[in-house]
Design a protein around this nucleic acid. Structure first.
Lengths: 192, 192
DNA sequence: CGGTTCCTTGAGGATGATCAACGAGGGTGG
DNA sequence: CCACCCTCGTTGATCATCCTCAAGGAACCG
């Protein structure tokens, strides 16, 4: 969404430092957040501290809208992965923008639809049980261009957190896939 | 959404018989669907035919919008659980309604937000691994009123399909929970 | 060079899936 | 009314698999 529009409605730009939480699981949703510069991770964690990554968000992305739209508590936590500039707008003003700009509302509707679609395919890959299947789905969904082989910019721990697996499992599966020529590992880096 | 409005835009009412598919995984999304009378199950299935239920939908509910909104293929399948009357509207006319009625668009935005919220909490309960945890989450989310104990109107197979577990596991966990007084089983029926 | 962070390997164990078999109830048609 | 067939619930035994725990190696960075 246009930053000037946000500012004109009273949005403020806030700096977050690396690892600083932006909102936390269980808290009420009072703001619309959009990244101006930096990177944000949204995750749910379970009782043992194991975390499941919902997504990474970058410049221009908004995040955490669903609880804001339905006046619910956050089921997830958002933290800055680097020092980041984030613009935040209060709920009332956000709703006002949606009302005044149907095209923005439409954009958000499509965005929500896209997130649901993503979540459904992720659920599918998780239910399919096999760790290899889950990892392949993760790799596929993070490829920019089909066809060409590219470096995967994620650590094994991150892949584990995205797929709900454990690091060791990811390492073993990935190295098995390497032997089967399903991907390449060069200097510990994964190419797929 | 108001049925007369849908009809005025050229929607048609179609009868589906029990177990008849309404749309299928992999197919393109061309219609908006809303139930007039009956019941619909939306599910994803994996390679072994195991199914994971996304949700049941009843009178007045719409379903299958996300792929329609973003012009994608269905990741899931919808089937009628009983003989049902369903009203369907082509994509173009659906979009036209959204444009002409911002309040309807807003409703759908909120609906999508609610679905995301649900999915996130379900993911959370699945990642939390323990079958008991998953089943408790399912039971909680299907209770009408907190506080009072009510009959759970689902078979063990359905609970299994909602939670991604196997029937036998559900049976064993539920009967363990019964022994631990976390719920009651009377005449094979579950009260929670 | 010392400290992170990330990657790797092995052994062992827990647990849910799988397979097989059976019981119980409800509805239907002969 | 009874025999049959469904669907649903139940139980036990076995198995495969991923998690857990523990330890150490490799790469990177100030």
């Amino acid at each position: 969404m246009d930053i000037n529009l946000l500012l004109s409605k009273g949005a403020v730009i806030k700096d977050y430092s690396k690892n600083e939480p932006i909102f936390e699981e269980g808290g009420f949703a009072n703001f619309y957040y959009q990244i101006i510069e930096g990177c944000v991770k949204v995750l749910v964690s379970n009782d043992n501290g194991k975390e499941f990554i919902q997504g990474y968000f970058y410049n221009g992305d908004s995040f955490g809208e669903p609880p804001l739209l339905i006046n619910e508590r956050y089921p997830s936590t958002a933290v800055a992965l680097q020092n980041s500039k984030i613009i935040k707008l209060s709920r009332d003003n956000f709703f006002q923008i949606l009302e005044e700009h149907p095209s923005i509302q439409k954009e958000h509707l499509e965005l929500m639809a896209r997130r649901i679609h993503e979540k459904t395919t992720i659920q599918k890959s998780i239910i399919n049980q096999s760790p290899e299947f889950r990892i392949i789905h993760f790799l596929d969904s993070h490829k920019k261009n089909a066809g060409t082989q590219e470096l995967i910019p994620f650590t094994r721990q991150e892949i584990a957190d995205f797929t709900g697996l454990r690091v060791e499992t990811v390492i073993r599966v990935v190295s098995k896939m390497n032997k089967q020529k399903k991907l390449d590992i060069i200097d510990h880096k994964i190419y797929y």
